[in-house]
Amino acid sequence: MFEIKDLGFNYGKKVVFHDISFTINEGDFLCLMGPNGSGKTTFLQMLEGFLVPQHGEISYKGMNLRKWLDKPITKKKYHQQVGILFQNVDIQLFNSTVYDEIAFGPKQMNLSQEEVDERVNDCLRLFNLEHLKDNVPYHLSGGEKRMVALASVLALNPQVILLDEPLIGLTNDNRQKMLHIFKQLNQIGKTIILITHYYQQIKELASDYLIFKDGTAQHKTQDELQESPDLIEQVEKY
């Protein structure tokens, strides 16, 4: 699904990472781990197209990401297929009600009102948010805001879901609820790419890991990681 070749990025003279090469297959559950400031969010934003690689390239479904983003039609198609949940979800919430928030994306796809209602109601049920559909998103709790923001991403029915620290600031109950939803999404074929510090909670879900440290990133499958006790000890500290 994604082909990453010799990827590198700098902020000024500071090298964030360099020479990252690996493949993300359809249906993978890829977990990005590493210390703060090691490049995880930068990498995620490059996949979404918000940042342009300074070295190397990213291809999606066999076509260079720059070409996907070059024309309005293909750019819109790409962002419908690849959705992102930011760590600060407040920047994603701008509608007057929860219903309108979740409905915004489907409406931009020119779906019928019946189809929009169906997608919104499916997402409300998935997150048990039906009782909040007429509430103002800005007035919700932190956990509720995160669920509404993710519901608005899922309403587009993306093939790839990018998640930047989706478990941070949640109660244990809401964290478990989100993990269950991630598992369900992956089981139906969605490709999940997630940043987290919660290795113990994600280890049963992730199929692959990209571990950032000191300007580099190691790609490991779940089996390969299990064969490296030192690396497990390292990611547990993140």
Rank of each mutant, 00 (worst) to 15 (best):
F2E: 01
F2P: 06
E3S: 14
I4E: 08
I4P: 01
D6L: 01
L7D: 09
F9I: 09
F9Y: 15
N10I: 00
K13E: 12
K14Y: 11
V16F: 08
V16A: 03
T23K: 11
T23P: 01
I24M: 01
I24E: 00
N25S: 14
N25E: 12
E26F: 02
C31Y: 09
M33H: 08
M33E: 06
P35K: 11
N36A: 13
G37M: 04
G37C: 05
G39A: 06
T42G: 03
F43Y: 07
L44H: 04
M46Q: 09
E48S: 15
G49V: 09
F50G: 05
V52W: 03
Q54V: 08
H55S: 14
E57V: 11
E57L: 13
I58D: 02
I58G: 00
S59A: 15
Y60R: 02
K61W: 05
K61C: 10
R66G: 13
R66T: 15
W68D: 13
D70R: 14
K71T: 14
I73D: 04
I73L: 02
I73P: 02
Y78Q: 07
Q80C: 12
Q81R: 10
Q81H: 08
V82F: 04
G83I: 07
N88H: 13
D90F: 02
I91W: 00
Q92T: 05
F94E: 07
Y99A: 06
I102Y: 05
I102W: 02
P106A: 08
K107F: 02
Q108D: 10
Q108P: 00
N110M: 07
V116I: 14
D117W: 05
E118V: 03
N121M: 11
C123Q: 15
C123R: 08
R125N: 15
L126T: 15
F127Y: 10
N128P: 04
L129W: 10
E130M: 11
H131C: 05
D134Q: 12
N135G: 01
P137M: 10
P137I: 09
S141E: 00
G142V: 13
G142L: 06
G143D: 03
G143F: 07
R146S: 11
V148F: 01
A149K: 12
L150R: 00
A151K: 11
L154I: 12
A155P: 06
N157M: 12
Q159Y: 03
V160R: 00
I161M: 06
L163G: 07
D164S: 08
D164M: 05
L167Q: 09
L167H: 09
L170N: 06
T171H: 03
N172S: 11
D173R: 11
N174R: 01
R175K: 12
R175I: 10
Q176N: 15
K177S: 15
M178F: 13
K183S: 07
K183G: 04
Q184G: 13
Q184K: 14
Q184C: 11
T191C: 04
I192N: 00
I195G: 03
T196V: 03
T196S: 12
H197W: 05
Y199M: 01
Y199H: 10
Y199I: 07
Q201W: 01
K203M: 10
E204W: 00
Y209R: 00
L210Y: 14
I211M: 06
K213G: 09
G215C: 11
A217Y: 01
H219V: 06
T221D: 00
L225M: 10
E227M: 14
S228I: 12
Q234D: 13
Q234G: 04
K237S: 15
Y238F: 12
Y238I: 15
